[in-house]
Nucleic acid binder design. Structure first.
Lengths: 169, 169
DNA sequence: GAGATGGGTTTGATGTGAAAACCTAGGTAT
DNA sequence: ATACCTAGGTTTTCACATCAAACCCATCTC
C-alpha cells in the first residue's frame, strides 16, 4: 500500500484534485470574475460536460461553491472558497513559468501599484529568498525518504544487505 | 481559432506541458535527486509506460534533459534544465496548498536556516505582498478581455460596450 | 408559438491510463 | 557457459476518461 501508490506527498494529493486538464483553468476563470457555467465553458474552451464534471468535483473538493443567483429558473454560479482563493499563488507561479518558457508575449499583464507584478517566492518566517540548495527536506512518512521507499522490516522492498543467493523463494 | 481553444493564457500553455497527471510528479522526483527511470517509476507510482512517455515529452518540452551516465549498456538519467529548475516555485505553491487543504500532516518538511520554509509570493519589484484585490489584469490578446472573447464581428455578445474602437480585425 | 438563451445531461466514438508481459543488453554468480 | 538478475524501456490488453455533438427543460423575447 505504500510503494504501490507512490510517494506520499502533498503535491500528489493536491494534483489529485487539480491535476486534471481543466480544473485549474476553471479556477482561473472564476478568479477572473467569470462565475457562470457558460462563461467558464466559453473561456476555457473545454467541452461542456467536462466543465460540468469538473465544477462538480471542485465543489466537492471545497475549492468552489455554488450560489443560487436566481430563483425562477434556478440558476447557480460558482464562487471561490477560501481554499480556492489560496490557489492564486499556484496560478501565479504557473503563469510566470508559462510566460517565461512557453509563450513569447504574455497574453495577460498583471500589475499592481502601477508596475508589473514579478512574483517571487520568499519564506515568510525569515523574509528571505528560498534557495533550493539551502533547503533541507525531510520525509515524515515512515517508510519513505527522499530517495524512495525504505526497507520496512517485513516488507522486502529492498533488502540492502540481503544474502543474495538464499533470498525469497 | 480564438474562442475555439479557449482563452490564450500562459497558464493553459504551461498546463499543456505540465497538466498531465504524472508530469509534475516526475519533475518532483528529479528535484529530489532521483534521476533514473527506475527511481522515478518507483517513487511516483506511475506505470512504466506512462513514465517513459512523460519523460520523453518533458525532454521535448525542455524541462528535463537526458544524460548518458554509462556507456557499456547505454544508460541515461534525467536532469533539470533551467526551465525545470524554475518549476520549483510551482511545486512549492502546490505543496503549500496541499499541506493546508488536503493532507492533515505534511508528508515532507522543508526547512532552511533551521526553520520551516513558509512560502509566500511577493512582488520582486516592490518587495511587497501581492493582494488579489490590488492587482490589475489586462489582456494583451486582441480578441479577449478578462470577461471573455470580444467582438466576434457578427456575434453580438455584448452590444452595449461594443463600440470601443471596434478594433476586431 | 417560434426561436434564442442558460444550464446542464446523455450518447457514441476516441483517446488515455493502468497493469502486466515481453524484449534487449549487459552484469553476476556458478 | 549457463542461468538468473537488473535497468530501461516497448507492446499488449482492457477499462475508464474525455471529446464533440445532440438532446432536454425551463424561461425570455419577438
Amino acid at each position: 500500500m505504500d510503494s504501490k501508490h507512490g510517494r506520499p506527498c502533498s503535491i500528489a494529493a493536491a494534483l489529485s484534485f487539480l491535476g486534471d486538464r481543466w480544473a485549474l483553468l476553471a479556477v482561473r476563470e472564476v478568479i477572473f470574475g467569470n462565475h457562470t457555467f457558460s462563461e467558464i465553458v466559453r473561456n476555457t474552451g473545454a467541452p461542456r460536460d467536462r466543465v460540468a464534471a469538473r465544477l462538480k468535483s471542485l465543489v466537492a473538493a471545497g475549492v468552489l461553491e455554488q450560489r443560487q443567483y436566481q430563483e425562477h429558473p434556478p440558476r447557480y454560479d460558482y464562487h471561490l472558497t477560501q481554499a480556492g482563493r489560496e490557489l492564486v499563488p499556484v496560478l501565479s507561479a504557473l503563469r510566470a513559468w508559462g510566460d517565461k518558457w512557453v509563450v513569447e508575449d504574455p497574453p495577460l499583464s498583471v500589475t499592481h501599484h502601477g508596475h508589473p507584478v514579478r512574483p517571487r517566492v520568499i519564506c515568510e518566517t525569515c523574509g528571505g529568498p528560498v534557495h533550493e540548495d539551502e533547503v533541507e527536506k525531510t520525509s515524515n512518512a515512515a517508510d519513505w525518504d527522499l530517495a524512495g521507499p525504505v526497507s520496512v522490516s517485513k516488507n522486502s522492498k529492498k533488502p540492502p544487505a540481503a544474502p543474495k543467493g538464499s533470498a525469497g523463494r
